[in-house]
Structure formats: structure tokens, C-alpha cells
Amino acid sequence: MLLFVSRRIINYTYRISTTCRRQVKKNTVVGEFSSVSMAHKMVPSLITCNSLLKTEGKYYYSVNLSADGHVICGMNGKVKVWDAEKSDIKYSTRVEGHMHDIKENGDHLYGALQHDDQLTVVRYDRQLTNRDTVVSIPYKTNQLSQIDVRYREIVVTDWDNELIKLYSSDGEFVRDVQLKDAKQPYGVRLMKDDCVLVSDWEADSVTKYKTDGSGEIVWRCDDRLRYPTGLCVNEWGFIFVSCYTGDKIYLLSPQGNCLITHCQLTKTGCVTA
């Protein structure tokens, strides 16, 4: 009898502990840790420089990728389309002024060309042979501006007036969106959900705004950010942000949390973030 009761107690205890372990495992996999494991996959473990594109006397401002995998570079006096696999220049054209940014949209490349006190949004074909002017914007200062183009929408940052300007892809003015608490908006990315990501190197922040005219902030990340410049979004929605001083790359979650910052680089190349 005593042996029977002992076995029942042991079995009951085992069932409880097994249930608890399963519950813990289930929470670990399905709960908040799934986002952590996803974020772990996003964090680079090694970054090595393997090639360089440089032209003496040229100043490089922007980079983008075309759908066919070529690298598009905007610089002072020139635009280049580079085949990174072959380290070969595919197309190149001269410009008057500084090509601050260039983005692909469909069969065209759209560039933000600054010359004197004017920013001109220009449109090229893929081979850079034909160019037309989409819109011209007078500027008070020689400010830097990035653009983004998505389907039939163009967005341009304007740090003189702390706003973004929205146009149709044919250059028709849509609206200005005043950016709340912005100081010098620079990098910009149009998102799928009628929002825009804006980096502000004076306010040390990356902010997601609604583009409906309200300028409402969806989220803002100013956690550890210093002089953020360009930004890009990968296929999982994670946001990579470059830093003007060049010693950091920031990685933000789709919700705007700063996941990692490479800030302590040693002589051996090891970094403890």
C-alpha cells in the first residue's frame, strides 16, 4: 500500500514538472523570445571590407541597388552604375552639381541634384542616356537632401524648413509634411504603410512619421544614436542606419528599438558593442 501511494505521488509530481517544462518551452518559442532569436539573425557577426569604388577628385554622397543587382552611386559631378561582381562601371554620366541621392523606381532612376541654391529632382533611364527634370525646389542654403521614390510617389527632405516634400513621380506637388521635433532631416525612406522613416543628424534620431499631412510620429528612436545619416530597410523590416562620423552602424527593429551599435572598435578589428 505504501509503495502504491509513493508511486502515485511520484507520477503526479512528474506530470506536473513535465507540464511546467512544456509550458516554459512553449512560452520561449512562441512568446517574446521569437523576436529575440529573429533579431539575433539580423546582427552581423563579422564585417570585412572587400572592395572599394573610388574616383580621385570625386565626392561620394549616396548608394543604392538596382533591381538587377547593380550599385548606383551619386557623387559630385557624376552618376555611376557599378557592377560589383565584376568591379566594372556599367554606365556613367556627368552632372552639374552634387548628386545627393539616387533611387530606382520601375524603369527609371530618380536623382536629387543640388546646384547653387536649387535642388532638382531629375529622372534617368537605366542606361543614364536620357535625363529630364521632374521638379525644381529653391533652397535657402546648400543643404543636403535625400529622396526616395516608391511607385508614383517621391519624397524629398528639406532641413531648412524641417519638413518633407511629397510629389507624384511626374513632379506634381502633393503636400508638405511638417516634421514634429525635427532639426535637420536628412535620410528618408518611404514605407508600405503610408509612413516615412526620416533620419535627423542634428536631433540624433530616426523617426517614423505618417505621410498624411499630420506629421504624426509613429515612433522615434534616439537611444544612443549620434549623427545618423543614410538608412535602409532589409526584407524583414530591420533598419540599418549609417553614422556621419563613420565609426558606428546602428540596427533598429521594425518598431524602432535600437538593437545594436558598433561603437568600440579595437586594433584587431574586434568590437564590443
Partner: peptide
């Protein structure tokens, strides 16, 4: 998380844009 990165990036300064 300790990470590794080339010295090349450390020598880089004045970065305007990034694409991944």
C-alpha cells in the same frame, strides 16, 4: 554580443549613406 569588424570600417569617416 561581441562582434567582429574590419579595421577598414574604423578608418572610415564621414559616411553619408548605407545600403544592405
Amino acid at each position: 554580443l561581441p562582434d567582429l569588424m574590419s579595421d577598414e570600417l574604423r578608418r572610415t569617416d564621414t559616411v553619408y549613406d548605407i545600403i544592405v
